[in-house]
Amino acid sequence: MAEEQQGDGYPTGLGTSDADSIRLLGKDLAADLLGRVSFGELAFWLVAGRRPEPGETRVFEAVLVALADHGFTPTAIAARLTYLSAPDALQGALAAGLLGGGSRFLGVTEDTGRFLAGALAEAEREHGALPGTSAGGADEDARWDAVAREAVGRQRAAGQLVPGLGHPVHKQGDPRTPVILRIAEEEGRRGPHLRLFEAVGRVHPEILGRSLPLNGAGVCGAALADLGFHPEILRGFALLARTAGLLGHLAEERERPVAGRIYNAVDRAAVYVPPSRG
């Protein structure tokens, strides 16, 4: 129906061009944007449809930096091995790494934002209002803790993990988490998603029976949600950030290759096991 109403046109509010100029977001790309807008600011603008305020840009770009790379993760290894197999197709190696962005790596950013948004909506339905987001002290923290207990309790009752908790390496605390929280606080962007995420960190041990760190992917999801982005778009920002990291891995692979050694190590350690069927 929407296509019929638009007739033969293909509307877009992003970019257009003609023989003499390029327009992006209603601006002249060459005259108004080049050298005047950072890439992070532009990425925010493209998705949100509005130019970010300086404080929003700082939080947003901190999130991108936090998610860009985390060493030899499966996504980085996939990219390097694909490049080993097809060095003529850089795009294939990048795509291979990005395709690994799922529930364990990168996708946690989206999963956490979705979990927090759902918990906030449920709390508002049940209680009519949410706690404040100012530095309200112990009383305000206690109200957020109550919301967090309900949310974590529902996850446990459903037999589901609480996204944003735990990390395979940073067992005692993800170093990115307190920095993102501090930056958001400094810029006045410590909103309900971050407040609830912090509360989850405080109350989950009493419900789950163990203490897990608030991970960097989770805090990034909460920060992005507080910037106004819908949960369904959050994984895209994680992929955007990780593209830079993967490109760095591929550039390093050209100079100091390790993919061949990874392949050989696995191949030489393979142990034949007869099929269990047939």
Rank of each mutant, 00 (worst) to 15 (best):
Q5V: 14
L14G: 08
S17K: 10
S21D: 15
R23Y: 05
L25R: 11
K27Y: 15
D28M: 03
D28V: 04
D32W: 08
L33Y: 06
L34W: 06
R36V: 11
V37K: 08
S38D: 11
L42S: 04
A43L: 10
F44S: 02
A48N: 03
G49V: 10
G49C: 02
E53I: 02
G55L: 03
E56S: 11
F60T: 00
E61C: 10
A62I: 10
V63C: 13
V65P: 01
A66Q: 03
L67T: 09
L67I: 09
L67A: 06
G71T: 13
G71S: 07
A76E: 02
I77F: 12
A78I: 05
A78P: 02
Y83T: 00
Y83P: 00
A86N: 12
P87L: 05
G92M: 05
L98T: 05
G102F: 03
S103K: 13
F105S: 04
F105W: 10
V108N: 01
D111S: 14
G113W: 02
E122F: 06
R125L: 08
L130M: 14
T133I: 15
T133V: 15
E140H: 01
E150C: 08
A158L: 11
V162T: 03
H170Q: 15
G173N: 07
G173T: 13
I183D: 04
R189K: 15
R189A: 10
L194A: 08
R195T: 04
A199G: 12
V200Y: 00
V200P: 00
H204V: 02
A217G: 14
C220A: 15
G221A: 05
A225E: 01
A225C: 08
D226V: 06
H230S: 12
G236F: 05
F237N: 03
T243L: 10
T243D: 06
A244P: 01
L247D: 13
L247K: 12
E255D: 11
R256C: 07
Y263E: 12
D267K: 14
D267E: 13
R268F: 11
V271S: 09
Y272F: 12
V273F: 06
V273H: 12
P275I: 07
S276H: 13
